[in-house]
Design a protein around this nucleic acid. Structure first.
Lengths: 131, 131
DNA sequence: CTTGAATCTGACACTGATGTCAACTCCTAC
DNA sequence: GTAGGAGTTGACATCAGTGTCAGATTCAAG
């Protein structure tokens, strides 16, 4: 498929897809005229990349991680080097800290939301009773 | 306390503390000479701000959120407006999505880490047996 | 006082993924 | 073939929090 279709199917902009390729995260064939041509597996790949970006990994680390994945492109998965494993373990800990932080922040939001909900309930109640 | 001590106790740079004040997230008294003077409660406040930043909230939203919290400065907590509640609910959903995404990404990392661990175990085992 | 550490303000740089625009080229349906 | 939509590269902008530097001022201790 071409870049427009991949963008549409993944929800990722064409700009970003070209950026991923530039960063070595995504490989594409080319037509005779130079247009990118992606295999169907690119959809999953792009979604995975987005997830890893959202998890706070930088492109360089993702570029080193992807070849070590099973179904990256059907080829044999490389084995992560000890250095990479150490970094990924660190990322893993960071992700754990981030999750814990997100849960705390969510509780903070819930407090404020529920306090307001209680107040509005009271207001609605007062209005309902004609007060 | 002064800014240096607050920075040390929170692990947040002085630069960031001044930025927080500029964004209306943090209030400080001033000495006669103009130096910032923080109450002890500023420590918790700064940590809270950092958590909310880490959760992906922007300073403007945090600035509107903070007055609605119970122990923000000991003063009475304001009630969040419906508009703010709607925004915070949206943030809450975003946080939930982010958590789900982080868990997925963590699983990806685990796969790669464990695959390598298995291989190294095999290698270590082979080494141990003198192979 | 004086001296050195701490703080002040203001300005500019950076990061890293993404948006956007320009000028050009390719592809496809007529 | 040709028109117009889609794709190409390259460059510059953006965001938002933070780093960093310069030059001036304040604080605290001798």
């Amino acid at each position: 498929m071409r870049i427009g279709e991949l963008a549409q199917r993944t929800g990722v902009s064409e700009r970003s897809l070209r950026y991923y390729e530039q960063q070595g995260l995504l490989v594409s064939g080319r037509t005779l005229g130079g247009h990118r041509d992606y295999p169907g597996s690119a959809v999953d790949r792009v979604i995975l990349i987005q997830e890893l970006f959202a998890a706070g990994l930088h492109s360089k680390k993702i570029a080193r991680l992807l070849p070590c994945m099973r179904d990256s492109d059907g080829g044999p998965a490389e084995i992560a080097t000890p250095r990479l494993v150490a970094e990924l373990t660190e990322e893993r800990e960071r992700i754990n800290r981030t999750i814990a932080d997100l849960i705390r922040s969510r509780e903070v939001l819930d407090e404020v939301i529920e306090a307001a909900a209680g107040r509005f309930e009271a207001t609605a109640s007062a209005s309902a009773t004609g007060a």
